[in-house]
Structures are given as structure tokens and as C-alpha cells.
């Protein structure tokens, strides 16, 4: 997917010679210290930035979609219109887009919130609606930038379980940026650890465990330990 990619902003080197191969339907978690270029990497994959060197290549005919960091639901639209946004942008008429969004929200257990505006929804619900919107775009490669980063621990655990079951229903190739080794160990098929700026791949940890996983499973803890060691965090 990425082949020797370098990206600089002025004199600052954000990413240096990053090579990343992702298999179809694989969930790769990208972790690394703040400012290591994780979000930049997603931008490159989604074509929102151009690499200064190296190559970004997607499998034939695959489209990408980005769920940016933070809460990007539109405050004036209800959950249904928010979820339908990707379809609307793709040119689907409003009625049809809303019908399909309705079916998707129902399928993902969010049907009860369809008519609610974001301000009346909890943080966990808002992020789920945003994920549903991202999936509704139909893109095969989904880039999630810290989707649950702002949530409290309990809400995040629920949202992570929800994401696991959602991706089991609708398998996609996923790049998940996170700063949370637990999230990476719970969700990912592979964990790619980036160094501090300039971001380089310092570890590539396979996680051959079945999902859903438990945070207290010794195998999951062992994965976290390896990830933390790669990050250089003392334990």
C-alpha cells in the first residue's frame, strides 16, 4: 500500500521511508508517539496529501475513505442524514440515501437514534454514527483516525466491541490510527509501530488471535507488552 514513502512539511520530516503492506480485509493498527505522522499517513493513503518520495498504491479499483480525528458529525443534521452523507456526496438522492442509512443504522444497532441530532447523543453514539457513515461510503479501504480516542474507558470498551462485531458483519480493509496499545491489541490483525518524528516503522507485530478478544486475556496482554516495548515505553 505504501512503498518507501517520505513526507516533509518545509524542513520538518514527518514520515521517512515508510513501507506498509496491508492485506485485503486486514485490520492494521498504527501506533506511535504524538506527532509521528500517523494522521499524515492516513492522508497519504486517502489521497489528501501527496508523498514527496515513494509510492502510494491501492489494489485495483479500491476506494478509500477517511474518518478524521475528532467529532465530525454535522450538528445541523440528524443521525440519519449524517450517516447518509457519504452516499449523498456520491450522488445518491436524499430519500434513497436516507433509506439505506436507516437500514445500516438498524443493522448496527443504532436505529433508535436515527432522528437525533448529534448534540443530544452521547460521545460513544456519535462516534458509532460516524463509523456507520464511513462504512456507508462503500469504500474498501477504511482509514479511522483515533475513532474512540476521546471516549472514557468504559464507553471506549463498548465502542471497540461494537466495532469488532460491525467489521465481522461488513469486512473491510482497515487502517486504525490509535495511541492506545490496548485498543490496538484488542482490534488489530497487525500492529505497526512508528517511531517519533520522523516517523519510521520500528516494529510490525502480528496478532494471530481470534476476535472478539478480552483485554485481560494473557495473549492480548503479551501483545501489548511487545507494542509498548517497541514504543520504548518502560514497563
Amino acid at each position: 500500500m505504501l512503498d518507501g514513502v517520505t513526507r516533509r512539511f518545509g524542513t520538518v520530516l514527518a514520515l521517512q521511508d515508510v513501507t506498509l503492506r496491508v492485506r485485503r480485509r486486514e485490520l492494521v493498527a498504527l501506533i506511535g508517539p504524538s506527532g509521528c505522522g500517523k494522521s499524515t499517513l492516513l492522508d497519504l493513503v486517502c489521497g489528501l496529501q501527496i508523498a514527496d518520495a515513494g509510492r502510494v498504491a491501492l489494489p485495483d479499483g479500491e476506494r478509500t475513505v477517511l474518518m478524521p480525528q475528532g467529532d465530525t458529525l454535522l450538528p445541523w443534521a440528524d443521525a440519519l442524514d449524517n450517516a447518509a452523507l457519504a452516499l449523498r456526496v456520491a450522488g445518491t438522492p436524499r430519500r434513497e440515501a436516507r433509506e439505506r442509512a436507516r437500514a445500516e443504522l438498524d443493522a448496527l444497532g443504532l436505529g433508535d437514534f436515527a432522528r437525533a441530532r448529534p448534540a443530544t447523543l452521547s460521545g460513544g453514539m456519535r462516534q458509532r454514527i460516524a463509523v456507520a457513515r464511513t462504512l456507508l461510503s462503500g469504500a474498501g479501504v477504511v482509514c479511522l483516525d483515533e475513532p474512540f480516542g476521546a471516549l472514557d474507558a468504559i464507553t471506549r470498551a463498548e465502542a471497540q466491541r461494537w466495532l469488532t462485531s460491525t467489521l465481522a458483519r461488513e469486512p473491510r480493509t482497515v487502517l486504525l490510527v490509535t495511541h492506545d496499545t490496548e485498543e490496538a491489541a484488542l482490534l488489530a490483525d497487525r500492529i505497526v509501530v512508528l517511531s517519533a518524528r520522523p516517523g519510521r516503522v520500528v516494529a510490525d507485530i502480528a496478532v494471530p488471535l481470534a476476535t472478539p478478544r478480552s483485554a485481560t486475556d494473557p495473549a492480548v496482554l503479551a501483545v501489548r507488552e511487545r507494542a509498548l516495548a517497541a514504543l520504548g515505553v518502560d514497563r
Partner: peptide, 16 residues
């Protein structure tokens, strides 16, 4: 800015 980025990520036109 986040909403703009979202729209760009969805391939939205300026008009959209």
C-alpha cells in the same frame, strides 16, 4: 476544519 477534511476524504466537490 475536521468537517472539511471529512468532505475531502469523501471526495466531495467544492459545491458539495
Amino acid at each position: 476544519a475536521g468537517q472539511r477534511k471529512l468532505m475531502r476524504g469523501l471526495g466531495a466537490s467544492r459545491w458539495q
